[in-house]
Nucleic acid binder design. Sequence first.
DNA 1: CTTGACCCTGGAATCGATTCCAGGGCGCAT
DNA 2: ATGCGCCCTGGAATCGATTCCAGGGTCAAG
Lengths: 158, 158
Amino acid sequence: MRETAKPLRSGELARLTGVSTDTLRHYERLGILPAAPRTTAGYRMYAPDAPERVHLVRQAMRLGFTLDELTEILGARDRGEVPCGRVLAMMEAKLGALEQRIRELREAQRAMQALVRNWRVQLQRTPRGSKAGLLQSLTTKADLPAGAPEHLKRRKQT
Amino acid sequence: MRETAKPLRSGELARLTGVSTDTLRHYERLGILPAAPRTTAGYRMYAPDAPERVHLVRQAMRLGFTLDELTEILGARDRGEVPCGRVLAMMEAKLGALEQRIRELREAQRAMQALVRNWRVQLQRTPRGSKAGLLQSLTTKADLPAGAPEHLKRRKQT
DNA sequence: CTTGACCCTGGAATCGATTCCAGGGCGCAT
DNA sequence: ATGCGCCCTGGAATCGATTCCAGGGTCAAG
């Protein structure tokens, strides 16, 4: 049934995958996406499996792979090599890092919970507008784990 | 016993707190550290309680506060205001974000563990150098949670 | 033939925290 | 007075991923 199929334009691919066309171009520049063939007018024509590739990239990023790493891995794959072993190794490393990171964050969480509980009480029994020294307490009960912060900022991937 | 005490030089404060002098200057620029008085030669003289302040900053960052937020909070405190209430509110928000983030990472972890297990098997039962399609499997079992990655990169805080 | 939606380009900007740089003073010990 | 280690300055660079920009084509509908 399906013929050689209709190529996608960049905007369509973007919509299908939830990334901006800018980002698609960016990936192409890095070699993460193969250079798409062009129409005579210079428009990119993406093969129907392009969304899958983009999806792959996003999933991998979600697991902590960087664009550089993906360039490396996917490049190898595109060259016909079989990077599976390498990928597995990287994956295991990523997983280790992730576990480590989760441990750190749990520690920070614990500390924060204690702090918040404490502060709520402190604040309540403090008259009004007189300093309860909440901040100050941070310096004294300096028992938080090392190296936890980093970022818990942006959660939407635009 | 202790007199008015000996002021610290920037290098000493840096060593005591584990931050670089560059970072100290940076904090001062942002107003996170009050402008230190100077010797006639222009050297900064930090009061003996300066390490405490720096420590406070690092702890707060560890909990997810940004430098901007600290500028705001500490600035208020330095101006004699009592930012405890505000701090508590921010703290609660941070905690919420942190919990959210931890949840995401655990999800990613779960997915990765499954993937790694799977891949180990796959790879073992694949002859040698023939593509096991590990990467490919990422696109199909696309059941990872949304918005987890971000960074689990640098773990040393230099 | 004009309008509006879409596409192209490369280089620059953004976010946050930290570091690096060059060019120039101190201060103490030899 | 020479050297070495420390200090000063402000502006720029770094990391990674994404976005923004300006100036310019393309295409289909009206």
